[in-house]
């Protein structure tokens, strides 16, 4: 049952983050790029204020998989790095914490560009 609830809340909270994004796409003239920027910055701000951590504890991947979770990861990284290295940490913490996702995107991007044919939506 506990296992089920874990997935249930990941689904509901993750879905809710996407629902808000969809509302922004459909009801405002915001382009997807602006919405993603807003999500990441919101993640950093909420992470910084300590609001996001309870959501992560509650919803697990429902909070870490959306891009706000990426912002939260950046904030957490900076917090840890500043505690260890002072002002230098403000500069190193973000990229260090976000490295896994960023590097994966770049590496798989190159691999896909090497191995796949360019797409054609029309056929």
């Amino acid at each position: 049952m506990e296992m089920f609830m874990e997935y249930f809340w990941a689904f509901v909270i993750g879905g809710a983050f996407c629902l808000v994004g969809q509302l922004l796409i459909d009801l405002t003239k915001l382009t997807p790029a602006r919405i993603l920027v807003a999500y990441v910055v919101a993640g950093v701000v909420l992470g910084g204020c300590g609001v996001y951590e309870p959501i992560v504890e509650f919803a697990g991947a429902g909070a870490t998989v959306p891009l706000t979770g990426f912002g939260y990861t950046l904030a957490e990284g900076v917090k840890k790095a500043v505690a260890e290295d002072g002002l230098l940490g403000a500069f190193t913490g973000g990229f260090t914490a976000g490295a896994a996702g960023l590097t994966a995107a770049v590496v798989f991007g190159i691999i896909v560009a090497l191995c796949f044919k360019r797409g054609d939506k029309t056929s």
Partner: peptide, 11 residues
């Protein structure tokens, strides 16, 4: 839509 945009898979 946003369901594939907002998760890290969209990134």
């Amino acid at each position: 839509g946003a369901g594939t945009l907002v998760p890290i898979t969209g990134f």
